[in-house]
Design a protein around this nucleic acid. Structure first.
Length: 453
DNA sequence: CTGGGGAGGGGGCCC
DNA sequence: CGGGCCCCCTCCCCA
């Protein structure tokens, strides 16, 4: 006969012991703060502590000490609370650091939950959010004040995420993590408050797109390269590395000392492991990484600037906040959008698209084909037999970049000539020839640049 | 089948 | 810190 509440009470008891400093044979020094905890639960929760404690198990009678400077005491408190309660208190502020700390400590479940949190925070898409969000607490997000989002390792059998629109940041929500057998039980009273993370959360990585990682584009990203994306979508599931697969790989590839570098580099490793790890330390990890401060929680990439990490994260989340109003294509970066816009919709290159010769206002014209603009020299125009279609440029309003801050809003065209939108929206077979006028194009540029900045 | 070019996308880094 | 530029790589299309 199985007493279902046993595991939960056991964990509660262990947590109580930790609070009362009973049987705490492991000291963890994080920056200047000392945490004490029984080693058995640490061992069971973290691959890192497994490694550490198995090494020091020979001297099991001696208290073990681990030292971390890679993350803050607050972050470790979140981690430790999770270890002894199964509840993870995430906020928009701490999630990156908690995730990196979890990566360092090789706690794959925490990493997965953080990934989910980050992805939902980035508001990737309604569809994806439908997949893995469910709120049980009706208070969630109601007060607009950021409260910790408590992720729980518990599973609930009946999972039908009703919530699709609330980012976890604004409020509290109770979320189930994926299964972690040690901490998977909740007594009925608690279960009602727990939410299960749908199993297809395991496929969350499939929405990440990173060619070099072989990951997939979000399924709901507009299919501009439909063939490519659909091909990927059609790939058998086995081609997609789910989070559960990737994280161990990550942990395996990254030894702890390179797994997290938000701080003082080599100092982050526990003393008991320092020697053996330094033996394997590459020159890069000792020198470059001390300068490269921000570690991507999804991959091994390390950058110097937080802003660069933020930008880099978009390649994992698939977030594309910069839509091109002219063609609908979305970009992850404004500079890419800008480049796309200039190239595709403004015909900025003074080069004949056909013969590649340099053209001027005298030797060539701008051709508009649907939303696309490019230049052709007069010879190529005549060859193509489209030199008779000539539109007065003054009737053509330049395509404009959106105003600053409109990164996710609709783009617009010249306001005083709305009819041009019709030209843009016409089929791609429609050709409009414009007189090449570099000064005009420069004016276009001026129209664009102030709007970009 | 292959090579070249266009376009997209990622990283580094300057302003 | 965001914008923007440059460089490089990859993918795709086309001749």
């Amino acid at each position: 006969m199985e007493i279902s509440s046993h595991q939960f009470h056991l964990l509660q008891q262990l947590n109580e012991q930790r609070r009362q400093d009973l049987f705490c044979d492991c000291s963890i020094l994080v920056e200047d703060k000392v945490f004490k905890a029984p080693r058995n639960v640490l061992f069971a929760s973290s691959g890192y502590f497994q490694m550490l404690l198995s090494q020091s198990s020979k001297e099991a009678t001696q208290p073990t000490t681990a030292t971390f400077q890679a993350f803050s005491p607050d972050t470790f408190t979140v981690i430790l609370d999770f270890v002894y309660s199964g509840k993870l208190s995430l906020t928009g502020q701490n999630v990156i650091e908690v995730m990196s700390a979890a990566s360092y400590l090789q706690m794959t479940d925490v990493i997965s939950v953080c990934k989910t949190f980050i992805k939902s925070s980035l508001d990737i898409s309604e569809k994806e959010k439908d997949r893995y969000f469910s709120l049980s607490d009706k208070d969630a997000g109601s007060n607009g004040v950021e409260r910790p989002c408590v992720y729980s390792a518990g599973w609930r059998a009946e999972s039908s995420p009703p919530h699709a629109h609330v980012s976890p940041d604004p409020g509290t929500c109770m979320m189930g993590g994926n299964s972690w057998s040690n901490f998977s039980y909740y007594p009925p009273s608690q279960r009602s408050a727990q939410q299960q993370l749908p199993k297809h959360e395991q496929r969350q990585d499939s929405i990440k797109k990173s060619r070099h990682l072989g990951l997939q584009q979000p399924s709901d990203v507009p299919h501009y390269k439909s063939s490519k994306l659909e091909d990927r979508a059609a790939e058998p599931a086995g081609h997609v590395a789910p989070a559960e697969e990737q994280v161990p790989i990550e942990a395996e590839v990254e030894s702890p000392h390179v797994g997290y570098q938000y701080g003082q580099g080599a100092d982050v490793m526990p003393r008991s492991l320092a020697v053996s790890q330094q033996e394997h330390e590459s020159p890069r990890s000792s020198n470059d990484l001390s300068r490269m401060r921000f570690k991507c929680p999804f991959c091994t990439h390390v950058v110097k600037r937080k802003a660069d990490l933020k930008r880099h994260l978009r390649c994992h989340t698939g977030e594309r906040p910069y839509p091109c109003e002219a063609c609908g294509k979305r970009f992850s970066r404004l500079d890419h959008l800008s480049s796309h816009f200039r190239t595709i919709h403004q015909a900025c290159k003074p080069i004949c698209r056909k013969c590649k010769r340099h053209v001027t206002e005298l030797t060539g014209q701008v051709v508009q084909e649907g939303t696309r603009r490019y230049r052709l020299c007069n010879e190529c125009l005549a060859e193509a037999g489209i030199d008779s279609i000539r539109i007065d440029l003054e009737a053509e309003a330049p395509l404009e970049f959106p105003q600053d801050g409109e990164k996710d809003s609709r783009w617009h065209y010249g306001e005083d000539n709305k009819s041009d939108v019709e030209i843009v929206e016409d089929g791609s077979t429609d050709l409009v020839i414009q007189q090449v006028d570099d000064s005009e194009d420069e004016a276009d540029e001026k129209d664009v640049k102030p709007n970009i900045r």
